[in-house]
């Protein structure tokens, strides 16, 4: 379970900010005053630190950090 979470936290930011770009390259819908592409990029500015934090916590709980 922990391993799956770890992989998810590592892969998601990269997929979301590089691979899926052709699919989010659009104006509608406008969310929070931002056209969709800009909203998507903004979303991942905020979500990426959560992924990093998740990885940090998982590594810490396994005692892998010093």
């Amino acid at each position: 379970m922990k391993k799956i979470l770890l992989i998810l936290f590592i892969v998601l930011p990269i997929l979301a900010q590089l691979v899926v770009l052709p699919f989010v390259n659009r104006i509608d819908p406008i969310i929070l005053g931002l056209p969709f592409l800009q909203f998507w990029l903004f979303l991942w500015i905020v979500l990426t630190p959560f992924c990093t934090f998740g990885i940090y916590q998982l590594q810490k709980s396994q005692g892998g950090l010093d």
Binding site: P13, I14, Q17, L18, L41, W44, I45, T48, T52
Partner: peptide, 10 residues
């Protein structure tokens, strides 16, 4: 520049 620098730190 946005995915670039977000991913750079990640």
């Amino acid at each position: 520049a946005i995915p670039y620098s977000v991913l750079a730190y990640f």
